[in-house]
Every structure is written in C-alpha cells, then in structure tokens.
Design a protein around this nucleic acid. Structure first.
Lengths: 137, 137
DNA sequence: CGATCTGTACCATTTACGATTACCGTGCAC
DNA sequence: GTGCACGGTAATCGTAAATGGTACAGATCG
C-alpha cells in the first residue's frame, strides 16, 4: 500500500499531540522522516476534506479541525489509498473464456474485500492511535 | 497489490477448465496476456506448495493436483502477496514520540487487517471462480 | 538423437515512487 | 510599503521495483 496513508496518520497524530498550536510542515517532516513537500501534499488533501486547517505566512502551519475521535482510519484510507487493494491485471486475451471474464470477476471480489477492510478500519480513530502511541505500544 | 496474485488465479482457473490434460505455459501466457516465463515462475511457486503438478518434456505442462474447491483465494494470497497490505513506512525520527512508536502501532493494526481480509478471501475457492467465469460474470 | 517442455539465471525496459528544486501567493511584522 | 515566513504546486531527476525478454540447462518422450 501507498505510504501516503502512513504519512497522513503520522501527521494527524502529530497534530493531535500539538492540538493547541499550529505545526509547520518542516517539523512534521522531520518527525516522519520525509521531505516537507510531501507532507504539504498529503495534508493539502486532508485540508480539502475538512479534517485539518492550514494557514500560510509567519506563524502559520497546520492544525486539527475536528475531534480526534471523529476521524477514523477508514476515512483516511478512502482519501489516500482507495482502490489500492485492487490487484493489477494485465490486459488478458479476450478471445479466451478465462481472459475475457477474469478481470470482472476479480474486480467484484476485491470490491467486496475493500468494503470488508473498511469495517475493520472504521474501528480505529486518530484518538485511538494517539492513545496507543502515548502508551508506547 | 501484486499482479502475481492475479496471474496465479488466472492460471489456476485455466487449469481447472482443462482439468483432464496438461496445459503449456505458452497457452496460459497467451490467455493471461503476459510472457510465458512469468507464468512458469508463478506456477513454480504453486507447485512447491502442492497445488499443481508439472511435467517437463514433450507432452508436458501443468495440471491441477487438488480439488478446485480445496484451494481458496486466501491460500493463493498467502503464497503470492502476504504482507502486501502492510503500508510502507519511511524510517521516522526515533527522537520524536510519534516517530518512535508509529511503526509498531500501524504494523499491529495492519496485521489485524490482513487477518480480517483472510476471513473474506477464504470464502472463495477456485471452483467458485470457475463458476463465475462460466456464467460470464 | 532431436524435438518439446519446464526451471532458472540473467539482463533490459518500463513504471512508480519519492526527493529535490523552484517559484508563486498569502499573511504577519515592522 | 518592504521583507520574511509560511503553505501550494508544478517540474525535474534519481532510484528501486515490477515486468518483459533472452538464454540455456535439465527432463522427457518418441
């Protein structure tokens, strides 16, 4: 799976622990071990969906816009990685019974799989992650 | 997800429909739209785990070694793609509370997710796939 | 032996990902 | 206003992973 998901979770957890002030992309980037531009890209997406707010200029940065317990891992997954479960099929031979229908069959099955995964990921919110991090587990 | 999974399912379905004779990697490759060598690589893995048999030389090829209903998609997933769900984390900053613990937390959560996915994929066997393909859905 | 297959090692090519740079627009301080 | 400190975004480049493809050894059969 894409690491955008990881970065988003990481950033949100960071913001949650700094909930009373703005955090700069530089600081988050240093914590996550990636370049600040990537953090801005990912967080820009989260901002578009109202999960966080941002402010430009001196004293600016990112800050949470919701309750931590309102944002689930599934929310983040759909924003950053939807469809990632879907296996890539090379274009198979339409002249063959197997080739002609395989794609459709697998697509349907994995649509169900992603839905199933959703039910699992909905159990976890950013608040849960923060608690786990704080406990050191 | 890895396309090895797709190729394995495709090949097995092909073999299932040709259950009374050996199939050459060339024929399967043509159906799947990939190079024959890749088919051999993937099928060589399935052979090692006793799902199919192979035979070299004239008149050789691949053939199913089990009942179609005994092989589930989860079996194939574990062979070809185990761990694929696990999101890649860049090495984050150990000096930061978030960075130091994020990996462990996410790892645990996704271990659960893969287990959850397993329960879903176990529902489907190669026989089911064959049936769906035959119905054209 | 010679034809036909799988089994693999190996290299070439393509693709995906991420790092990095560069530059713009915005907001604050003075 | 000017200058600095931010996020927003596009463009470029390097690199690793996925895939395509070649070559050849080993097995099997007639």
């Amino acid at each position: 799976m894409n690491s955008d998901f990881t970065l988003a979770i990481h950033s949100l957890t960071y913001l949650a622990l700094q909930h009373d002030r703005m955090s700069k992309s530089d600081a988050i980037a240093e914590s996550a071990g990636v370049h600040a531009v990537r953090i801005r890209k990912v967080l820009s997406l989260l901002k578009k969906h109202g999960i966080i707010k941002s402010k430009e200029g001196t004293g600016g940065g990112f800050i949470f816009a919701k309750e931590f317990s309102e944002v689930s891992l599934w929310d983040i997954y759909t924003l950053t990685s939807e469809g990632a479960l879907q296996p890539k099929c090379p274009e198979s031979n339409e002249a063959c019974v197997v080739g002609a229908n395989m794609h459709k069959v697998l697509f349907t099955i994995f649509l169900g799989a992603e839905e199933h995964l959703g039910e699992y990921l909905k159990q976890y919110t950013i608040k849960d992650i923060v608690d786990l991090i704080s406990k050191g587990n």
